[in-house]
């Protein structure tokens, strides 16, 4: 009975909300920083180790995307650029599921899925290190 009551409740589309709020806010923050002549501090990980961190290049990627320069965006961080471009699709998917009263899908509970996530993270990081971003 409780499960049925839960299924009748429409959940908050958190992913869609985060994308809808995050993308304009991020863009506004970039423009504000530019207008104020301010820059984000350099990456502490790179300063400490000499190697780029897993997200090094994302600020420059965001700046390039804001200027509509897709090639430069993919140059600075291909994985993050792809993620940002796919974000509206993910938001639409989440909003549709929420509207249809479907819960967030369960994350697969397998060792393989965990290895894929860790491997993808390390691969994206390795790519940035090899390219010397």
């Amino acid at each position: 009975m409780a499960e049925r009551a839960l299924a009748l409740t429409r959940r908050v589309p958190w992913l869609a909300a985060a994308v809808l709020l995050g993308l304009p806010l991020g863009l506004a923050a970039l423009r504000w920083l530019d207008a104020a002549g301010l820059h984000l501090p350099p990456c502490l990980f790179k300063l400490a180790t000499g190697l780029p961190c897993a997200t090094c290049g994302t600020t420059r990627m965001a700046r390039a995307l804001a200027e509509g320069d897709l090639a430069a965006a993919f140059h600075w961080h291909p994985v993050a650029a792809a993620a940002v471009l796919l974000a509206p699709l993910a938001a639409a998917w989440d909003a549709r599921r929420a509207w249809r009263r479907e819960p967030f899908p369960e994350v697969p509970d397998t060792l393989g899925a965990r290895l894929v996530v860790v491997g993808a993270f390390l691969a994206a990081w390795g790519l940035q290190i090899l390219r010397g971003v």
Partner: peptide, 14 residues
Amino acid sequence: VIAACCGCGLIVVA
């Protein structure tokens, strides 16, 4: 640890 590997994590920790 993972956030620290993302650079900005160090700022967050500090």
